[in-house]
């Protein structure tokens, strides 16, 4: 997995690519999320368009980011959730926890 990030209208957009399965690669996303929080960034979007799949490690990273942001008065939203990841979010009922949007533009507008 690798990770691009940029800012849109003051909102951090993280764009992981590849597979999020655990191990050193997965810590890149975890560390970037927490770097955003440490910098005081309270609005974060994760664009999942280029994530082939993730396992429970990836879901755990998303939850960690979400709860840490919410505890700091912020919010994490998802964009471009692929069918494979949507299916995992449904199976695990995390679909009830995350706000997800069809595009980064829609996610940005929702803040």
């Amino acid at each position: 997995m690798n990770l691009n990030d940029y800012e849109r209208d003051g909102i951090a957009v993280l764009e992981p690519r590849g597979k999020i399965m655990g191990g050193p690669d997965a810590t890149i996303l975890h560390e970037k999320l927490h770097e955003c929080i440490e910098k005081g960034q309270k609005k974060v979007i994760i664009d999942l368009a280029r994530v082939e799949w993730m396992n429970s490690t990836g879901l755990g990273i998303l939850i960690s980011g979400l709860t840490t942001l919410r505890n700091n008065g912020g919010e994490l939203k998802l964009a471009n959730v692929t069918d494979k990841i949507q299916s995992l979010l449904t199976i695990t009922k995390l679909v009830t926890v995350f706000e997800a949007f069809d595009s980064v533009d829609e996610a940005v507008s929702s803040f």
């Binding site: 429970s56 879901l59 979400l66 995992l88 695990t92």
Partner: peptide
């Protein structure tokens, strides 16, 4: 909202 414990379930 627990970060772990989903592996076998999945």
């Amino acid at each position: 909202l627990k970060e772990v414990g989903r592996g076998i379930f999945i």
